[in-house]
């Protein structure tokens, strides 16, 4: 009888101790988590508060004036849109096709394992290294090579939009591949089996059964890669980002009788993220340019957050549909 008495007492003591431990540790974990959330909102709040004062239609469309102390960021927005568009053009087909191979065709062999390791490692390469590669390979090797072979003078052998977007395309390739694979794998296996059982070929199954269902998931990856590309700065530092361009990089394609305006991808460009970097570090008069800087930051942040939110919603809906399908 005495023994159990002691046991219960020590148990109660122990219980109190663990309760206290739990309380303190859970409080700390909660505190750390919510302080991160608070910091995020502080950063966003500060940028929105300062930025919204400058943003109007003129700011979004006009070019910088008076040594960047006045005017807007029109050319930077334009440059960002064009470079990201070209990037998507380069990266999305290769990324999605590679993902289809990896999830639908590949068996568990050496090639596929190397492929998986490659994609993972490509995602881990520092972005500045992509910049080195872009300058050394695209600009100096391919661009200069083209110029000297075809005697084009200095046409492609200089930092330009084309090379910037090609480099960004490599940078976002893993993002597209990984989320496309995830989307393709989410399509239930028995649907593939059913389609094959009905006599459809493998390609017909992929085209008519798998891809239509995986489409929202794949789109999520594309959206995420757009946001990643628009926010990236380091690789573009030496790939044709300009401090200031008075004119849009538009050339006229001469067709004899008439000429049509075309975006010239062999030109330099302005970029939103690079514009923020330049204004922050090389501004001639920081107090005057500060509002413009906050405005630019707010525009970039809004673009990136809107894209990310869209991706989050897309993925959420995609997962829900997939879960429903599985339940049926």
């Amino acid at each position: 009888m005495k023994m159990t008495d002691i046991d219960i007492k020590s148990l109660i003591k122990n219980r109190k101790k663990t309760d206290l431990q739990t309380m303190i540790s859970m409080f700390l974990i909660k505190f750390f988590t919510y302080s991160i959330v608070a910091v995020l909102f502080l950063i966003l709040g500060k940028i929105v508060y300062e930025g919204s004062a400058v943003i109007n239609r003129q700011f979004l469309t006009s070019a910088p004036q008076n040594n960047m102390t006045e005017g807007g960021i029109g050319p930077a927005i334009f440059g960002t849109l064009v470079v990201v568009f070209l990037m998507i053009l380069f990266a999305v087909p290769v990324g999605i096709f590679a993902a289809i191979y990896m999830s639908e065709y590949a068996k568990d062999n050496v090639f596929n394992r190397i492929l998986r390791v490659t994609v993972n490692n490509l995602a881990g390469v520092p972005s500045i290294v992509f910049g080195l590669f872009g300058l050394g390979f695209f600009v100096l090797f391919i661009g200069r090579g083209y110029d000297s072979i075809f005697g084009a003078g200095l046409f492609l052998g200089k930092p330009a939009m084309l090379w910037a977007s090609a480099t960004l395309a490599i940078l976002v390739l893993p993002t597209i591949i990984v989320s496309s694979i995830e989307a393709l794998r989410a399509v239930p296996r028995n649907q593939r089996i059913a389609s094959l059982g009905l006599g459809a070929s493998k390609w017909q199954t992929i085209k008519n059964v798998v891809l239509p269902q995986a489409r929202p998931g794949i789109l999520t990856g594309v959206i995420l890669s757009i946001s990643r590309g628009a926010g990236e700065t380091a690789p573009l530092l030496f790939l044709g980002c300009a401090f200031f361009l008075p004119q849009l990089p538009v050339g006229y394609l001469d067709l004899g009788l008439f000429s049509i305006p075309m975006i010239n991808p062999a030109e330099q460009f302005m970029y939103l993220s690079y514009h923020i970097f330049i204004l922050a570090t090389q501004s001639t008069n920081p107090t005057i340019t500060m509002p413009i800087q906050y405005g630019t930051t707010m525009v970039l942040i809004s673009i990136v957050i809107l894209l990310n939110l869209t991706a989050v919603i897309f993925r959420y809906k995609f997962r829900q549909t997939m879960n429903e399908i599985k339940r049926v």
Partner: peptide, 24 residues
């Protein structure tokens, strides 16, 4: 509610964070 917020944090361009550290 929290997961998307953390994901947005991950998506903030590094140049913006650099600027924020530098200025504020």
């Amino acid at each position: 509610f929290l997961k998307p917020i953390i994901e947005i944090f991950a998506g903030i361009p590094t140049v913006v964070l650099g600027f924020f550290m530098l200025v504020v």
